[in-house]
């Protein structure tokens, strides 16, 4: 799908159960976000990179995703080292060492979490993730919202584009004026009305095909040996990193 460029691979990680991957992604993300020691965060980044390699994800696209995240992190590098008392000289620049370490730590942790999510979550299609969340007892309504918002966001975008094109063909040029705001308001309102109508029709189509409120995915729901192996290795990794962090004097 358009937003799922990483989900269609055939790697070992792609074939693992969605539940295991979601649980590990959640636990690792939580652990990584709590790390206070940069060497351990570096290890976490290495682990996440290893998973990306295991998933055989296209590196250019992975780097593009990382670049987006690091644009925001760059702002931290431009501010954190300059806040507080300058106690370290880097050539002509005097910076705050604690701020510098903080920026480094945040960079390592953020990149590790993004890589981890790409390797564990983005390697499953949204249908698989929806089914996995449902099996993990996440409320069914939430899972269905996730699945169908994703499907129909494209249809609604198309509807809005159609309205915008119709307005343009009738000479509408957006400016900073009340007329423009009113026109956009009308177009958004009409898109919502059409979306609501379509929602009704889709619900009818689902009911006519036996839908009773529960989404049944096509993926097999039994955990295989390889899934259990991934889970065991993942939990072992979690305990290992936690142990290292505690030895390094983590403050949590």
């Amino acid at each position: 799908m358009v937003f799922e460029p990483f989900s269609s691979g055939t790697s070992w990680l792609h074939q693992r159960d969605g539940r295991v991957k979601v649980v590990l992604a959640l636990l690792f993300s939580l652990l990584l976000s709590l790390l206070a020691s940069w060497p351990v965060a570096l290890l976490g980044l290495g682990l996440a990179l290893g998973l990306v390699l295991l998933a055989r994800l296209p590196l250019r696209q992975v780097l593009a995703r990382l670049a987006m995240v690091n644009v925001f992190i760059l702002l931290l590098w431009l501010t954190l080292p300059l806040v507080g008392e300058a106690d370290l000289e880097l050539g002509p620049l005097a910076v705050n060492q604690r701020g510098l370490e903080m920026a480094l730590l945040i960079t390592l942790k953020s990149n590790a979490i993004v890589l981890l999510l790409l390797a564990l979550v983005a390697t499953s299609s949204l249908a698989v993730l929806g089914q996995a969340l449902q099996l993990l007892l996440v409320p069914e309504k939430f899972c269905l919202l996730l699945l169908y918002t994703y499907r129909y966001i494209f249809v609604l975008t198309k509807e809005f584009d159609r309205l915008r094109r119709a307005a343009t063909l009738r000479g509408f040029v957006p400016t900073t004026s009340l007329h423009t705001y009113r026109t956009y308001g009308n177009m958004i309102g009409m898109t919502l009305v059409r979306g609501w109508r379509r929602g009704q029709r889709v619900q009818q189509a689902m009911v006519l095909r036996g839908f009773t409120g529960r989404y049944h995915g096509l993926t097999v729901t039994d955990l295989g040996r390889a899934d259990l192996l991934l889970l065991t290795m993942g939990l072992a990794g979690l305990f290992f990193i936690t142990g290292l962090e505690l030895r390094a004097g983590g403050t949590w």
Binding site: M1, S125, L147, R151, M206, R209, F211, T212
Partner: peptide, 28 residues
């Protein structure tokens, strides 16, 4: 567009049989 609501064709076609109690393998 009202009738096709699943991400892929195979998932959409299998939607009905799954609701009627078919296993994922049978539905596929």
């Amino acid at each position: 567009d009202d009738q096709l609501f699943s991400p892929t064709v195979i998932e959409d076609v299998a939607f009905g049989p799954l609701n009627l109690g078919a296993t994922p393998g049978e539905a596929r």
